[in-house]
């Protein structure tokens, strides 16, 4: 019996697959711990990050443990990679997660702590219940889903953020522990066609040196209005001793990218001044944001009128 949620397509006959989160039961692939979450806490949607989604609204961030990748610089390696028997998940049914969401006056749920592919059935059930209550749902993913899972996510998520870390199969194999980038590129196109898509790229030295503008061109080819988050990398896990990228290096990429991709942002550090949205047509400052610490932040003001620039009326892509 094979698991077809991600491109590893693990055989579950004698185990739980690479992520360890699925098992074979009555000739079906099921989660080992459905509706068991590591955490649920309200954050601004900008902190996920989603910059073109319900500015300054709070969502419940949740997730589980494990991952189907093994990134050398993973910032969540304590959850995604390391084994820890002391860690305990908390059970919360889809129904009670939705109830908590409403009780906390949050506008939805974002699956953002670890890779959503590790808990697809639970996530989809929660998404359906949220939609039934008029709430929104989104997720972060590394994009290594199978094509059928990509469609399933695109059909059920209101917004998706894909981490596109490189265009190189070699980099994906060596630094991320994934067999190829090709499924990710395919899925980005699926997500773009069916839902609101944002992309995040951590600024890793060799990616910046070799291919950052190729990544920019790929995104431009899919849709020039895709939101692109350039992420200041805080090297962790196996690359904890790596030197930081200089601000000049990061800013040069940001300035260049904005010529092609107007919704490019440079963040993941407190005080960033490169997180505001300007109208691509008339240059009007439409949304001003603040980064208060690493990934944390929100919107200071939002001048959108019905999702359009208040000055020239251009429609700004997103979930507003």
């Amino acid at each position: 019996m094979k698991c077809n949620y991600c491109e590893w397509r693990c055989d579950l006959t004698n185990g739980n697959g690479i992520c360890g989160r699925y098992k074979c039961e009555n000739d079906k692939v099921v989660e080992c711990e459905p509706f068991n979450w590591i955490d649920f806490y309200p954050y601004t949607v900008e902190s996920m990050p989603f910059y073109h989604v319900m500015p300054n609204e709070y969502v419940i961030q949740t997730g589980t443990v494990s991952c189907n990748a093994h990134c050398s610089y993973c910032i969540n390696s304590h959850l995604a990679i390391e084994e820890n028997s002391a860690r305990k998940l908390k059970h919360k049914s889809a129904e009670s997660l939705v109830a908590l969401c409403k009780q906390m006056d949050c506008k939805g749920v974002v699956f953002a702590i670890n890779e959503i592919t590790c808990f697809i059935p639970s996530a989809i059930e929660v998404a359906k219940r949220l939609h039934a209550e008029g709430l929104k749902v989104g997720c972060l993913t590394n994009g290594f889903e199978t094509e059928e899972t990509a469609h399933l996510l695109a059909d059920n998520m209101d917004f998706i953020n894909v981490s596109l870390k490189s265009l190189s199969d070699e980099f994906y194999k060596k630094d991320l522990g994934l067999s190829s980038v090709q499924p990710v590129l395919r899925n980005i196109k699926i997500f773009n066609d069916k839902t609101h898509l944002e992309i995040v790229t951590p600024l890793v030295h060799e990616v910046v040196e070799n291919e950052i503008y190729d990544i920019m061109d790929f995104i431009y080819g899919v849709n020039p209005e895709i939101v692109w988050h350039l992420f200041r990398l805080m090297p962790n896990n196996e690359r904890a001793d790596e030197r930081d990228m200089t601000h000049e290096e990061m800013l040069k990429i940001y300035e260049t990218a904005r010529q092609k991709l107007p919704y490019t942002y440079l963040g993941n550090f407190a005080g960033s001044q490169w997180v505001d949205t300007y109208c691509p047509d008339c240059g009007e400052l439409i949304i001003k944001r603040i980064c208060t610490g690493a990934w944390l932040g929100g919107t200071v003001f939002n001048n959108l009128v019905d999702g359009q620039c208040p000055k020239c009326g251009k429609k700004i892509s997103g979930v507003f």
Binding site: P42, Y58, D105, A270, I290, G297, T299, V300
Partner: peptide, 14 residues
């Protein structure tokens, strides 16, 4: 209190 949501950009954000 997680039910109280301080808006970013409110006073003393840092």
């Amino acid at each position: 209190n997680p039910f109280i949501k301080k808006k970013p950009g409110a006073r003393y954000s840092f």
